[in-house]
Design a protein around this nucleic acid. Structure first.
Length: 244
DNA sequence: CCCCATGTTGTAGG
DNA sequence: TCCTACAACATGGG
């Protein structure tokens, strides 16, 4: 039971980059002497709960990561390091500094304050349909809107629509419940695969879009070709043949 | 070297 | 309301 940050006494918190801090350093000091008791997630936010029911909350941005280690030097770009009494350290690595660190005493209140929708992997099919069926904009934007559903980002929204044979610019409000149900099922399937492979992106099956995110690449599902379009300021990849 | 891309989000302006 | 552009930032590929 050494290789977990749970139930280890927190000796100190080192802040190397205060710009990513969305709370005061005094709030982080409250964690000293306590230990983490539970880890959970809502959308793209990771909640580290302590025995006093405080929450250290991490958002990873595009390049956020964590490392639990004992020997050797601290990783590059470690925005924050938690020192434990067993000599281990826990680093929040944040290369592009797009990640953020929060503190809260109430997880649900935090979720509400951030305006997050239900977690994409937890919500039911009926709830999914209810949230989407009357939305205005295009389906890719809707899927990525954290206030509607929390947790879907750029590559996963593309992957879901690719598996659902749906063009990313179709209007969300135009879909039948049956089509929304199909999107939901593909979302669940893709998330489960991601979990199964521990989110090592190069372990996704070859035919997945994630392996084909380059213009002019061949589609993995039909004879089509992959195209790129800017949507929401992000690169959207899709098949020009089977996504209608 | 430059230019462009990249698992994100908030804001400004049309 | 919704879409676009852009800023924040570091790194790697061509």
């Amino acid at each position: 039971m050494t290789y977990t940050i749970l139930q280890k006494k927190i000796e100190d918190i080192i802040i190397n980059d205060s710009k990513v801090l969305q709370c005061s350093s005094n709030q982080l000091k409250k964690l000293q002497g306590d230990s983490f008791s539970n880890i959970s997630r809502h959308g793209k936010y990771c909640f580290l709960q302590t025995n006093q029911d405080y929450f250290l909350i991490l958002h990873f941005g595009m390049t956020g990561n964590v490392k639990y280690y004992k020997n050797g030097s601290d990783p590059k770009h470690a925005s924050l390091i938690v020192l434990f009494s067993n000599g281990y350290k826990f680093a929040f690595i944040n290369v592009r500094k797009l990640g953020k660190i929060f503190f809260s005493q109430d997880k649900n209140q935090f979720i509400k304050k951030m305006g997050l929708g239900s977690d994409a992997f937890s919500l039911s099919k009926n709830e999914f349909i209810k949230m989407l069926q009357y939305k205005k904009g295009i389906i890719k934007s809707t899927l990525m809107d954290q206030k509607t559903i929390a947790g879907i980002g750029n590559i996963y929204s593309d992957e879901i629509l690719y598996h659902s044979s749906i063009h990313p610019k179709r209007k969300t409000g135009d879909f039948s419940k049956h089509e929304l149900s199909s999107i939901y099922k593909n979302m669940q399937k893709i998330f489960q695969v991601a979990i199964d492979i521990k989110v090592q992106l190069d372990h996704f099956p070859d035919y997945y879009l994630i392996n084909r995110r380059k213009p002019a690449m061949k589609c993995g599902l039909c004879k089509g070709t992959i195209e790129r379009k800017k949507i929401n300021g992000r690169s959207c990849y899709f098949c020009n043949k089977h996504q209608k």
